[in-house]
Structures are given as structure tokens and as C-alpha cells.
Write a protein that binds this DNA or RNA. Sequence first.
DNA 1: TAGAGCTGCTTACCT
DNA 2: ACAGGTAAGCAGCTCTAT
Length: 988
Amino acid sequence: MAGKKKSKKKKEEDLKQKSLFSYVESSKSEKMGEEEEERTLDEETEELQDISEEFEEDAEMEVEVVQDQIYGEDIIKFKKAKVKSPSEIIPIPQDLFFKGNDKPFGLKEGNIKLEKISRESVTSKYIRYLIQKGEIVQNLERGLLLDVDYDGTQNKAYCKFYDLDTGEVKIWIDTTNHEPYCLSKEPISELKKNKELIGYDGFQRFEEIKRMDLLSDKEIKMTKIYGKTPINIGGSGTNIKNILAGNDKKAWEADIRYHLNYIFDRQLIPGLIYSIENGTIKKVKFKESEDESKKITQELHNLFKDESIEIQEFSEKFLDIFLTPIPDVKRMAMDIEVNIGEHDYRVPDPRQAKQEIISISFVATDGLKRVYILEREGFTYSKPHKNFPADAEVVFYKSEKALLTETFRILWKYPIVITFNGDNFDLNYMFHRADKLKISRDLNPIHVKRGFGILSKAECDLRKGVHIDLFNFFFNRSISGYAFGGAYESSSLNAISDALLGKEKYQHEEEIHEMEYNILSWYNLKDSLLTLELTKFNSSLVWNLIILLCRITKMPIHEMVRRQISTWIQNIFYFEHRRRGFLIPRRAEISELKKGGFKKSVIEGKGFQGAYVISPVPGIHYDVVVMDFASLYPSIIKEYNLSYETVLCPHEDCKDNLLRNTPYHTCTHKMGIFAYVVGFFRDIRVKYFKPKSSDKALSEKQRNYYNTIQQALKVFINGSYGVFGSQNFPLFCLPVAESTTSIGQYSIKQTIKKSEEIGVKVLYGDTDSVFLLNPSKDQMSKLSHWSKQELDLDLEEEKTYQFLALSERKKNYVGIYKDSKYVDIKGLVAKKKNTPDFIKKVFSHLLEILKNVTNNEEFSKAKKEIIEIVRDNLKKIGKSDAFSLEDYAINIALQKSLSGYDKVIPQHVRAALELKKATGKEFQKGETVTFIKTKGGNGAKAIELASLQDIDIKKYKELLRSALEQILDALGISFDEIKGIKKMDAFF
DNA sequence: TAGAGCTGCTTACCT
DNA sequence: ACAGGTAAGCAGCTCTAT
């Protein structure tokens, strides 16, 4: 039955900490401790049939199913296919075969003749086709702006709108005559003397403009230098930027990609609704109900009425962004299966596209459920798999070319196509495979571009529609970390793409190329079902999140889903600069003016000093209250007016406005751009959307929506400090980063002082928290008030431990929550994913005992039991009947490719190299190696090659010892003491 | 020449 | 192309006692 093996008790604390996404965390932790039973195909598939109902009512379940996919632990087990004699082969019923379709599609539709243009991109050709056909949209009532890009052939920006009335994508080309440009501080008269510039082919003309220069806090005259095309401005080779640089002059805003520049200049907001009238686009004020939006507008006005003018003005600009409902759009998920040979461990190279595509599945929001299957020799089909949905259809093809062609027909039809890893695999593969099969490019809907980012080798767009690769989105560090609570961090990225091909880890089961049609079709369809479901669950949470993030970042969807938080934040600030007529500074300008570096980092080689960690008071403590500063760094940035232009501002009268614990001053005239943007996000989340998201007076749908907004905001709030502190951030300003952490250090240190003054002992603390020994309500509120008064920061009660074990180690402790008895483990070896299971088992046994301890008497009792357990387990190591080989396994991730280890070769790398040599298995960056510590040889052996006799008993005893010492230390038990008892036992 | 002692590399964690 | 601080194990080296 669906999910029967998973217990559904949720940890109260998880709920509190992770809000909506807590179920991800809890399902993961439940998985950890459990033995993974083998689920049969039946169980799995029954689950899927119920998926749609389940997703409505049971959030926990959905993600479990999804998790299997993400983790590459797709648990489907198949029986090995039997080899059949020819008489056993039943032919496929004729009516299941594709019957042909002559209707033209793609660029073949209509009788359009296009002249050849060499080196033209496939999208550019499509746009020429639309122009010729008269299908560039001139009038549109309500269009959701999805994408903005640049088209080389037209030399113009173009937009993709989702027509809310027809569900189609409409393409609009800029009609405002926007041109590429960069800026110079030289006057036109001076620039005219530059023969190279004037004579340059790509140069267009000059224009005098004014910009506010934040660094000098003055309005300055500048020259706008127009180029013919974006590549004439920046990029590589000869261009205006380089010509200026060659003459020792600088160009401003020359590195902004054209389509983004276009968005900034036109102040377009992707994700909002626009209308087009006779070629002119206009933002639609979208108001479902006048009263409702008026009320919210009023509430938000009141919220910010005491804030700075900068925040008030900025908040106005976000009304639309938050108030406009997010339309649920028509979309289709798809997935392909490729015929991979036996014993082939490599992921097929999409650019080569050597193997045939044997199956493609489609699932769409309009009810489409379909699988296209290629007929191959030796396979039979009598009826669908018993779990194959009744409303899904299978179509067989005699040729791969027809199969792919018909796939393209569907791809042209849907406005939004969802894949999981389609950039690097599915779409990329189909594009190149189509070339191989000599399918006309005019029918091919895919546009393969060069990729960027950590893992993207390619970016696959659609010429007409929009492609969203969920792999990119889900593995964005901020999305996985802040929005989904780090739930799938432990999975290697490569394992997921492998899981989609369904081969890795399933060597013992039937492989894809051996599957009968009924199994293959169901297997293939299931992936698309899940992929679409990923965008649909929780009232389209993920889709809503994607659109909200587009609106907040002002990035086109194709770019937003593929970029990291630093680019998102950069874009927000560029857009804001342009909105207010601020000059976007050059990176070097900031660093020359504001050098910083007043304190060295604790860690050698880091850019600046970070947080302060209080040395713990070792021992057992009861009734410990943890208080912490609510979003410490963002609060500091807002309250202390930290921004690249305000810290060390040029005004004489600000020079004595020193920031605490730093040699820097900050501006008293205006609020800095970092300060008001981060401040606004923080305030509106904490004071408005977070309370709304749990407001019982609202409908569930509304609460869900507000929760999505507060979750999206959290991404920016939590990510902002890290981005500001990154040397690669174009607006990086060392004194800002230093001031943030330095004021943080000051705040926590003053808090310790104050606590002790009012008679509360501080046991420990890290960055933004203090662990207080049994404080009274009165003492806590005193501390809170003092913090607000003296530090301008909110110090709040976070949690209470009935029991807390501290060792002398920082970032290392075990606490048990007072009410829920939830065991909170931080940093201990036993918690780390590279610790062998048998150690984790012993450890959790100890914790079970500690759970009930509330005072010293109970503790002494527990102590005796613990000594007993440790002694017992030490003896068991290496005994054949005690632990299994898997219990000794150590998992370590490869942070680099195998060849990248040139300084030292760690054990896990040696184990991987040995396994590669023995079996040919490839390891990629990010993948996890599972190995056993062995006597002699390498000292390590991949689990695939090891047996129980190989284990190094001495090493494992050592490991158990050091893991347990972390907690035994705190309990006041010495390991030697335990060993001593063992000896005495042996004596008597 | 084995082993002690050290430094630096590597990974995983905490906030 | 988000930050710094901490713990732990090991690789690889030099030095030293034998």
C-alpha cells in the first residue's frame, strides 16, 4: 500500500524550524535509521496510481515518492527477463502502431520560404519565420512574461509571453528601438578625439546623459556610447569597451548582458502580466478583487510608515509583485529512455547521441499521458503493465525517426516543457539524435546553447516554448538549502541523472535495454508523472516559487532557474540602480576607494574575519535556554546602514559616525542600497508574510500562497550576507563584509557580558546565539529589552534543553528538548554521513538511554548502562556474527574529479581508483565512494571488492573510540575507564 | 628502518 | 562562483632512536 512502511510521526521541532518544507527533512531522517526493505514493483506502482489524490492531502507522502527519484534510489526492482524462443514472441497488435500524420508542423507549417543565412541560430530562423508568417504578436490582452532574450538576426530583444486566454506562447519583438550601449565619464568632445573609437565599425553614436554616482554621492554627466550590436559593446575581441581600455579610459556598464540591460531599461518584470496594444507592451494592474488588494495595500503602507523613505518607496514597487496572483499554466513533462548496451557504465554523451531512443513519455496538465515506444526485435507486448494508468496510451513506432518526429510535434505544441536534467541529457540528446536521423531542423523545436553554472554543460531552450529543467532548480544551493531545508544535499548530482536512466545500482535487476514493452512504458511514464508532479504538488508550490523568484530577481525564467543566488542578487541590485538612475559602479572603483582589511581572519587565506564562537563549558547541564538574534546579519546590515556606498561615505559630517567594533564610519544622510533592500525583504517577511502564512482566519490556499512568498524571501535574506562577502560579487566591498561580522561579534560578546551582569551563566554560543543556564523569565526579558535598546537587534528565546551535554569542543553537542524530548545532535562524528553505520547504531543506543535523564540521579543510572553498551560493542567489532560488511562502510564524497587529486591521494580516492580499474566504473565529481578500511594494501577497499575478513579491526575500534569520546567526555566517562573494567571482567 | 611528530590537505559539519 | 569557523582523519614529509 502507499507508503505503508514509512511511519509518519513528524518531529515537532522540524516543523517549527523548517516550516512548510519540514516533511522533506523528516522523511529523510526516517529513512536513515531504517533498513531499506526492497519494495516490489507492485507496491511502488500502487503508490503512483494514488498519487494525484495523495498529493492533495498528504504532503509528506508526495515527497517520499519524489525523493526516490532525487536520491537515485529508484527502488523499482525488475525480474530478469527470460530469453524467449521465437514461438514465444507475440506480435504487437497492429492498432497500437503509429498510423502516420501528414499535418505539417514547426517551420513547415504554411508555405513560407526563408532565405538562407549562414551561422544563424535556430531560434533566429524561427523568429524570421514568424515575421514572415505575420505571427509576431501585436495585440495581446493578458500575457505572462516568461522570457526575454536577444535575437542576433533581428538585432533586437524579444519576449516570450504565455497568453493567459489561449495557453499559447506568443513572441513579441522590441518595438521601442532599444539599442546596446555602455557609459563613459569622458565628455563627448573628448571621446570624439578617439580615432579608433570613431572609426570602429560597431560604433554608432554618442549621447550626453546624467547619472547619480553613489560613491561620490554626486550627480555626474556621462556619455552614452551606442554600438550597433551587443557584441560591439563588451565581450571578447575588438569592441568599444576594449577600445576605451586601450586608450586608458574606462567603460561603465559594459559587462551587462544585453537582454538584462533591456529588462533594466524598460523596467520589465518577468513573471508579471502584460498587455500588448498595437505592438506596445504595458504592465497590467492585475486585481482579482479591488477590496482585497486595497486592504493589503493599506496594511503594507502601515507596516512601513515609520521606516525610512527609501524603504517606503521600494516597498511600493513590490506591491504588484506580491499581489498579482500566479496563474497556473499548461505544461508538459517528458522523459526519454535510451538503449544502452550491457556492461556500459557510462552516461551516454548527448552530443554524440549514439544509441537509439527507445521510449519517450509525456505527461501534461491537460490530461495527456502517453508513451511512444520503438519496436525492437525480440520484445513482445500483450497488454499494458497492470499499474499502467487506464487513461494513458502507448503508441508503437516502426522507426525511431518517426518516433522522434512525432515527439517534436508534441514539443512544439506545449508552451512549457518540464524535464529533469533535460539540459544535459533529454533535450540535448534528442536534438543531436534528430540530426543523426536526418530529421529536418525545421521540425526540431530544440535550441542547444552553451551552458553555464556548476554542472550545466549545455542549456537547452525551446524555439517556441519554454523549457524548465527542474534538476537545475532543485539543485540550486539556495533552493535546496533555504527553501527545502537541505533535504537532498547528501545525494550526488550524478546519481540522479543515472537514476533517470535507471541503471546505476540496479545491475542485478533487469536493465532498460532488456525490459519488455509493458515494463519499459510504465517505467518511462512514471518518470514524467513524477517530474510534472514536482511542479504541481502543494497547489503548484514549485511553479509559484519559480514565478515569484523571477519577479523578485527580474530575471527571465530560462536564466533564473539556471543561476545561483549571487547572480539573482546582483540582478536585483542592477535593476534597482537603473530604476533610480544610479550609475552601476565598476568593481575596482569600490575596492580602490574602500580598502578595508582591519582584522585578519582566523583561518589562513580567508578574506576577512567571521563569527565568534564561545568556548563551551564542558559537562552535563539541565534547563538550558538558547536565545538568538533573529537573522543577525541582515538585521545588522539594515540597522547599521551597511552598503557599499554608505560605509566610508565621502561626507565630512559622517566621519564620526563610527560603526561599533570597526574603524569605519557610515552615512547619516541616506539609507544605503544594500540596507534598504535587505531590510525590506526581512521586515516584510517577518512582520507580514510569515504571520499571514499561519493566520487561521485565511483560507488554506491563501496561507499556502503567503508561505511561498515568505519562503522565497527567506532565500534572499539568508543568502545576502554570503553574497556581499564574496570577492566575486560585482558590488563587493570589504569594509561592508567586515563590519557585518564585526558588529555581530560585538553583539554576542556584549550579550555575554550583560548576561553575567544580571546573574545568568553563559554556557556556549555560536555566531548569533547564547546558551543560558536556567535563566528566569524576567532575566530573559531583561536581556531582550537590553538588546533592542543597546544593539538595535531582536534577541529571542529559541528553545530549551532539559538536558545538554557539552564537551570542550566547539560546534559539538547533544541536547534534548524540554517538551518534545527531541534529540538535537550537532556536529558529532556519529551524525556525519561518513561515519560507519555500526558506530551510528551504538550511538543512537546511547541516546535512547540519555533521553530520559532529567537530573543527576537518573544520570548516574544511565552512566552505568552506557558503560555496559560501549564495552559490549567494542568486543563485537570484527566478530563474524556481529556486524555486516555494510555496517563498516564509510561514505565519502569526491569533491573533485579523480584526476584532480594531485597533492594527496586520500583513501576514498584510492578505493575509487581501484574499483575503476577492476570494473570500469567511472566516478565523477560529487559522487560518493563507499569503502571499507582494510588491513594492508591501500588501507581502503571499495565495498564492491571487499569482504568481512578484510576489515581492519584495530582501526574500527579506534574510530568507535573517538566517536564515542565526543559524548563520553561530556558525561564524565573516560574511555580508558571502560577498557579498564573490561580487563577486570576478564580477571574475575 | 620503523615510528613519532609535524604540516597541510581533505571532508563534513555549524551558524 | 554566497561567507568564515571548527573538528577530525589522513598523506606525506622530516627527524630520531635503534
